[in-house]
Computed example of a mutant assay.
Amino acid sequence: MLCYYAVFPTKNLNQDILIGFLWDWLEHSKNKMEGLYIEKTFPFEYEVDHKHLKLQIFDEKYFTIYFSTQDNDKNTHFIVEVIYDMLEEKIHLRFSKETSHDSRYISAVSIPVLFKNILVSPYIKSDIYPLSYKAHHVKDIEAMKVQEHQLPILYMHTTYIDANLLARKMLGLAHVCYCKNQKEEGYIEIIDDHESRIFQLNKKRQSLYQIYELNELLRNEIIKKYKNHMPSYEQLYQNQILHQQNMTMKNAYDYQEEFKKEIKRQQIEVDELKDIYHMLMEDKQKALKQNQKLMQVGQYHDALIYVDHMDKIASYHDCLLQYIQHKAHDLETTQEIYRRLDILNAILKKNGDSI
């Protein structure tokens, strides 16, 4: 189940900086992976105990960090994803968890410290206000409402809930604003897309429960808003597999088409040889018939009749052999092995010559 999603424009961010954030988070939390050495050659993958880390670049565009851990005590599977769009310079943060049916404990949703460190860093572009653990003091609430902003604004019409506490709980979900000398009105105003709505507070309930409800409300609204536009590691990985399969099929099709074209080219050359052979054989038969007629005439004359048709036949024979030798030589120079090369060499060898 997707519990948290956010997307923010960045500035001067790169994959080395993100790896630094990742390393610092892993080394200073219970997610530390013994023996881990991050190589900056991708894809990179490391697994130890119940923790699994994957780093990969997809489509020469998305640098992705995928970290999953199986909490054996609570039977809960956590997945942390950082997807950095290197072309559009945007960062996507996703946090998911799956709880086993055998689990007797459902943990509260709290975004990973890795996300918090990235959000409050100087590499995230400021919205109407910079992302912060502290609430923002405003003097003119009406002027603030008409300004463009990406995240919703929570304006405190109460002192029942501490504004800075709420800001810490809403980091990456909303900006928390207040004014001094605020009168107690018992509600929080949610300002989003230049529209306002009321989140009513109940002083009979603990403030932390109401903060959790407001947090869940905003998280679900943001996930719903971006559900058709948010990338994920699994989606990018599946797209890569599909692309590789399509390329394999395309390469096989292209090879098959090229093979067909080569067969057609060879057939054309064979047909040309056949045509020349038939033409020379027709000339030879004509010359033989003409010579037979002359020989019959010569039987009735004492004088020697000189006939040069046999010389022409020899010339045709030499011409054919030269053409065959030329074709065979072309095949040798291209270093291509064809069945017809063997046939041509056999013809030349039979007639006293070979390549």
Score class of each variant (00 low, 15 high):
Ser100Pro: 05
Ile276Asp: 10
Ile124His: 00
Asn291Phe: 04
Ile191Asn: 01
Asp353Gly: 05
Leu304Trp: 02
Gln150Arg: 13
Tyr84Leu: 02
Gln335Trp: 14
Asp275Gly: 07
Lys51Pro: 01
His136Phe: 05
Tyr160Gly: 06
Ala135Thr: 06
Tyr123Thr: 03
Gln235Ala: 04
Arg94Pro: 00
Arg205Asn: 10
His50Cys: 08
Phe115Trp: 07
Lys224Leu: 07
His50Ser: 14
Val176Ser: 01
Ser196Tyr: 01
Tyr133Phe: 14
Gln70Met: 11
Val48Ser: 10
His136Lys: 01
Arg94Thr: 05
Ile79Arg: 00
Asp127Ser: 10
Ile268Tyr: 03
Phe42Trp: 13
Tyr253Met: 09
Phe21Lys: 05
Asp342Phe: 09
Asn202Asp: 15
Glu221Ser: 08
Pro43Phe: 07
Cys319Ser: 15
Lys327Phe: 09
Pro112Ser: 10
Gly172Arg: 02
Ile161Phe: 02
Lys312Glu: 08
Asp85Thr: 07
Leu2Met: 07
Ile337Ala: 08
Glu234Asn: 10
Arg340Thr: 12
Asp193Phe: 10
Leu151Tyr: 10
Phe44Thr: 09
Cys177Asn: 03
Tyr338Trp: 07
Leu217Ser: 11
Ile276Trp: 12
Asn75Arg: 06
Glu257His: 13
Glu282Lys: 13
Tyr37Thr: 07
Lys286Val: 03
Ile188Thr: 14
His137Gln: 11
